[in-house]
């Protein structure tokens, strides 16, 4: 190759090092938090307990996959409606299968379609109607919350099929339940999508410099709509799994996922400004947040306290990661 000696800046650069930095921090923190949990409450870090944490982390991680894509696409991309989609999917799935394994396929297809439709509306609002993603998806969340009240009329409804519950809670292969394998598969798929497909290149390009992407003939709007559709579908998958985990759906079961899905992405090294980062770090971020949640529960901090801790965590992260990375571009 005619490539000649690079600049001094080139010489010491390793793309992997940059990618790994937030990942290493997250992994280190996970180990530290597990040790802290074991110290506070012996048995916290037992194999059984860690597996339970991983199942919960998988639910959060699957939501965060879609969130990750939307954020990577840039232009203030964010999806605040994911919590509503999770709740809606759990209810649709519960009612479509109502405790019967034979209804699982229909439930999955129905939920994916609903998630895709919501994402499509979000995407169209953001690209064609130029509504800021924050406002668009927050509005969508409001609509979904209202819809949930109307549908259920306040009465819990729908039950998970035994097959679905088993998939989420019972060992399937090598002692791990199906949902863990599903999460691993999603992780591999995301890595493939982002690193080995033209669509992946395009997602980074529009997140990094939308004007340049447009001038290079990329379908900027279509791509951005697709990201919101995928986010809706991932949230729907998480909603189905959540139904399997809890057995039946209850009020606003998915709401708790909105903030953590964003924190996991930022913790994993994807700045809110988009254009760089990836899903591997986000997976570590999801596990980290789940362990943190477990510790907060152990020391008897209730839901409102946990939300405060999460909110503060996000703000701190913005201070350390988000802002620094945004400035560097």
């Amino acid at each position: 190759m005619s490539a000649v000696e690079g600049t001094r800046k080139d010489a010491g650069f390793s793309p992997m090092a940059a990618l790994k930095a937030p990942l290493m921090v997250a992994l280190l923190l996970i180990v530290l938090l597990l040790a802290l949990g074991e110290y506070l409450s012996p048995g916290f870090a037992s194999a059984q307990q860690i597996l339970r944490l991983l199942i919960v982390a998988a639910l959060m991680g699957i939501v965060a996959a879609g969130q990750n894509l939307v954020i990577l696409g840039g232009r203030e991309g964010i999806d605040l409606s994911v919590g509503g989609v999770v709740s809606l999917a759990a209810i649709i799935a519960g009612n479509l299968m109502s405790g019967q394994d034979s209804g699982i396929l229909l439930a999955v297809l129905g939920c994916l379609a609903a998630g895709a439709l919501i994402g499509l509306i979000n995407g169209i609002g953001v690209t064609l109607l130029r509504i800021p993603p924050l406002v668009m998806t927050l509005g969508m969340l409001g609509v979904l919350q209202g819809l949930l009240v109307v549908i259920r009329n306040g009465i819990p409804s729908g039950r998970a099929a035994p097959g679905l519950s088993g998939f989420v809670t019972q060992p399937l292969f090598l002692g791990l339940p199906g949902i863990i394998w599903l999460w691993i598969a999603i992780g591999l798929l995301m890595a493939f999508l982002l690193r080995r497909t033209i669509l992946g290149y395009r997602i980074y390009a529009i997140g990094s410099n939308e004007q340049a992407a447009f001038m290079a003939g990329m379908p900027v709007k279509t791509t951005r709509i697709l990201l919101f559709v995928l986010s809706g579908m991932f949230a729907a998958i998480a909603g189905i799994c959540l139904l399997g985990y809890t057995g039946s759906s209850f009020a606003n079961v998915g709401e708790q996922y909105m903030l953590p899905s964003i924190i996991a992405v930022v913790f994993g090294g994807t700045p809110l400004s988009g254009g760089k980062g990836g899903y591997t770090g986000t997976m570590a971020g999801a596990i980290l947040l789940t362990v943190l949640q477990g510790i907060l529960t152990t020391v008897n901090i209730d839901e409102s306290g946990r939300q405060m801790v999460f909110g503060a965590t996000l703000l701190l992260l913005m201070l350390f990661y988000g802002r620094g990375q945004a400035l560097r571009t």
Partner: peptide, 16 residues
């Protein structure tokens, strides 16, 4: 403004 996809690898910048 119109050309460079800043922060992305050369490969992604040369192939679109």
């Amino acid at each position: 403004r119109d050309g460079v996809i800043a922060g992305r690898p050369i490969l992604e910048n040369v192939t679109p």
